[in-house]
Amino acid sequence: MNPTIQTLLSHRSVRQFTEKKLSQEQINTIVECAQMASTSSFIQAYTIIGVKNPDTKARLAELAGNQPYVAANGHFFVFCADLNRHEAAGEMEQTDVTASLESTEKFLVASVDAALAAQNASIAAESMGLGICYIGGIRNNIEEAGELLGLPDRVVPLFGLAVGEPAKETSQKPRLPLKNVYHEEKYEQDREQFKKGLEKYNETISSYYSDRTGGKRSDRWTEQMSGMLSEPKRMHMKSYLDKKGFMKS
């Protein structure tokens, strides 16, 4: 097994970091690796905001649901969908690009581009022996987060990425069975068949939580997902995206 595959298969979220800050060389390398991710039609529709200021990180931690590791880490990155520079490109070339920038398709492109860049950044960081944790909670109070980061129209914060030196070894959550995520030729629609896979996975996850918490928690994956999805969250997203110039068509 080569080192790249070993790094990928060893991934786990880290939520406790030492006080050691990333060097500027480490930050630059992580961002440069992010930039080498694939990008649709060379559009590169994302921006990465690096946050070092302790007060800003503390405020982002509050906005993200009081998650302490948003403030306490080696460096905090915020990945944004960004079509602002493409609006500027249209102005430079005296071309009206508004209809494209306001389309749902281009928001999807920007979101996928940002996610691909972030995953490159994560793998780069983990290859350096650092730990990472994605922070979707940035979207809990997305408008306030965007204002804090000074984001103009056509730029929205999608998620954060906490990076740093792990304070302790963390366990790895078992993933879904391969047969539940990988289908060949066409989507496997035998629901009873893949429910069997989910039942096995429920046993695995329940055992994982029980071992990790000394028996205090043993919820199943389907139980966890059903509970989470029974109450819609972040229903403000559509109006915010509309306000920022996204997904108008």
Rank of each mutant, 00 (worst) to 15 (best):
A58P: 00
R212H: 07
Y201L: 04
A81V: 04
F107M: 10
E184W: 11
K106A: 11
Q26S: 07
V109F: 06
G136T: 09
T56C: 14
D113P: 01
Q35C: 12
A121H: 02
G197F: 08
T7V: 14
L83F: 04
R12K: 13
I30W: 01
T204P: 02
Y46K: 02
K248Q: 14
S13F: 08
M237P: 00
L101C: 09
F246M: 06
Y182A: 12
C80F: 06
A72E: 13
M36W: 13
R59K: 15
L108G: 02
I142M: 11
N28M: 13
V155W: 03
V70A: 07
R217E: 11
A115K: 03
L101F: 09
L108V: 13
K106H: 15
F159V: 06
L63T: 06
V181M: 14
K179H: 13
A162R: 01
N53E: 15
E102K: 14
D242Q: 15
G160P: 04
A72W: 03
P157Q: 05
I5C: 08
D55Y: 12
T213M: 07
S206V: 13
E223P: 00
D219V: 13
D113Q: 06
N141P: 02
A125K: 01
E231L: 14
N66V: 05
L60Q: 04
N202G: 06
L83R: 03
N28I: 09
D82A: 05
D113W: 05
R220W: 08
E185K: 14
Y69W: 15
I5K: 09
F76P: 00
E19T: 13
L8S: 06
Q224Y: 13
K200N: 15
S171C: 05
F76K: 02
Q189M: 12
I142H: 01
S171F: 07
L116T: 03
I135N: 01
Q189E: 12
K21R: 15
Y240P: 00
K195M: 14
D153Y: 08
E192M: 11
M237V: 14
L149T: 03
T18P: 05
T39L: 03
T204D: 07
S122P: 00
F17N: 00
F17D: 00
V181A: 11
L8P: 01
V70E: 02
A34Q: 04
M92K: 13
L229T: 10
